[in-house]
Design a protein around this nucleic acid. Structure first.
Ligand code: MG
Length: 224
DNA sequence: GCGACAG
DNA sequence: ATCTTGTCGC
């Protein structure tokens, strides 16, 4: 698969924020896709000792959740982790892994937020925009936004709100288990984002895409 | 200035 | 996210 857009990555904090504000204008928050058959989960594993990182892209069939294709790559971290600028650290290796895939996936699932971000441009938006492919984000903890308490049953959810705007959902994927924070990344609506994450999380708190990509990335890092 | 803060 | 020893359980 190939990018339809690219930009400089060697930027300082100030430049990244400016870039996010510019690219955020291109994010599409409504459903805009033909089909959602092949779903790809992406994640990165880190080794602090030498800053070597491994990224994995795992393609699943959305209906059976069977693994269709997987690719892993090794790289070096070139940007620190800064809340709000997460995509600059994690996206380079992820893009590298995605470009190794022979299949062009219909949906990108990120381990982090989409528009549930201070500038409405989390990692799922950034990745979705670069490939112009539908994307959604599923974070384990909150970055920004407020919400009321969510019900205890799988499927229960409450809106995540920031500055009078709904930016995502706090979704219970398993009964009695901590909820996740889901938000649109690109070309997917709030409702479809919830429906997809729920479908991808039939047995565990996190979607299979996130669980598998995390596992493959760590396995690759352990081998070098 | 203080507190918050995806992975 | 990673670091980090032993320890509990199947
Ligand atoms: Mg991760």
């Amino acid at each position: 698969m190939n990018r339809v857009l690219d930009h400089k990555w060697d930027l300082d904090k100030k430049e990244v924020i400016a870039l996010q504000k510019t690219l955020a204008g291109g994010v599409i928050r409504e459903d805009s896709f033909e089909r959602l058959k092949y779903i790809v989960g992406v994640d990165v594993a880190y080794r602090n000792r030498d800053d070597i990182v491994s990224a994995a892209a795992v393609v699943l069939d959305v209906d059976t959740l069977d693994i269709i294709e997987t690719k892993t790559i090794n790289d070096i971290a070139k940007f620190p982790y800064i809340p709000g600028l997460f995509s600059l650290r994690e996206l380079p290796p992820i893009i590298n892994a995605l470009e190794q895939l022979t299949i062009t996936p219909d949906l990108l699932v990120c381990d982090g937020n989409g528009i549930a971000h201070p500038r409405r441009f989390g990692i799922a938006c950034h990745l979705g925009i670069l490939f112009d492919i539908p994307a959604i984000g599923c974070a384990k903890t909150r970055l920004t936004g407020e919400h009321s308490q969510v019900g205890p049953i799988r499927g229960d959810f409450v809106p995540l709100i920031d500055r009078d705007e709904v930016i995502g959902s706090v979704l219970r994927t398993q009964n009695e288990i901590d909820p996740v924070y889901v938000s649109p990344g690109h070309r997917v609506s709030l409702e479809t984002t919830r429906k997809l994450i729920l479908k991808l999380s039939p047995r565990y708190r996190l979607p299979e895409t996130t669980r598998l990509s995390d596992r493959y990335a760590r396995r690759a890092l352990a081998e070098i």
